[in-house]
Design a binder for these strands. Structure first.
Length: 278
DNA sequence: GCCCAGGTATAAA
DNA sequence: TTTATACATGGG
């Protein structure tokens, strides 16, 4: 039995808010409230006891890895105080889910899951991602690692039929091939000027501004990224009339995630705006 | 049956 | 350059 890793004095983290807020599609809540999932090819179960972050089936050598994954070096309390000054509704949204952190997911996994996310809902996204890992990922303890780009690059859209991903199957194959061949270098997107990083990702068929922004935010920790799509524009119009993404500052990506979660929990706040748009 | 879902490719104006 | 439509699938 692999020992549990305990990381003490963790603040500003709520597992449900962070792991189930539409940034990762790889975690499942257990009856006891803990979350099970796989990241970096490691199958773990995480729970929170006071300020102790408990990671079952993880070893002490991986502490740095998990600290990074949960972005524990960033002071989210300070970030919230800063962005709360921008707008009263944003202050309310941040107050509503103070336990959201932006995970530092693996870039290729973030890219694929957000390709799958297009014109799709979170429940079905999770199902497709789960089948993708079961079909083509390496088995690890009680789950499956996310398949590598190299493995997926050898597949055809027809091979992906069991995923029931629909028209997104060929996008996944194209992403895998361009990443595996080096035509698209994800790691470069960490340091490239923002627009260049976006262009790099948009070489992939099926990757537009939204998928690129989500990949940059959740896979490459570009926390200035502000994914703008139909939904977000709707939220902006409804909740922040007159404000544009650039008004949200250097932590726009984090602000955006508070807004996303808040709006998902309060659909009535922009339901009317939704109808007007169509 | 209809509408919608963390959009994008493609064709047409 | 901007706007309209199809796209696969499944839940409400």
């Amino acid at each position: 039995m692999t020992p549990s890793l305990i990381i003490p004095n963790v603040t500003d983290l709520d597992l449900a808010q962070t792991l189930d807020c539409g940034q990762s599609f790889r975690w499942t809540q257990q009856p006891d409230g803990s979350f099970s999932g796989v990241a970096f090819g490691r199958s773990v179960n995480v729970s929170l006891d006071g300020g102790d972050l408990i990671i079952h089936n993880a070893s002490k050598e991986d502490e740095a890895l998990w600290r990074e994954y949960f972005d524990l070096s960033l002071d989210y309390g300070a970030v919230r105080r800063q962005i709360s000054k921008l707008h009263p509704v944003l202050k309310e949204a941040a107050r509503y889910a103070p336990g959201i952190r932006i995970l530092r997911q693996e870039p290729y996994e973030a890219l694929c899951t957000f390709i799958i996310s297009q014109n799709n809902n979170i429940k079905r996204i999770k199902g497709i991602v789960s089948r993708l890992c079961e079909c083509f990922g390496e088995p690890v303890d009680s789950g499956f690692a996310f398949p590598t780009a190299e493995k997926m690059a050898a597949l055809t859209p027809d091979d992906l039929a069991p995923l029931r991903a629909g028209f997104r199957a060929r996008y996944l194959v194209d992403a895998a091939q361009k990443v595996a061949s080096g035509e698209v270098v994800l790691e470069n997107c960490r340091s490239l000027p923002y627009e260049d990083a976006r262009k790099e990702l948009m070489k992939i068929t099926g990757v537009g501004v939204k998928v690129a922004d989500c990949t940059l935010l959740f896979g490459l920790h570009r926390i200035e990224a502000f994914p703008v799509d139909v939904w977000m524009k709707r939220a902006l119009d409804a909740l922040f009339p007159g404000m544009s993404p650039s008004d949200f500052g250097e932590y726009a990506g984090i602000a955006q995630q508070y807004i996303f979660h808040y709006s998902r929990m309060h659909p009535e706040l922009f339901a009317e705006n939704k109808k007007v748009e169509k």
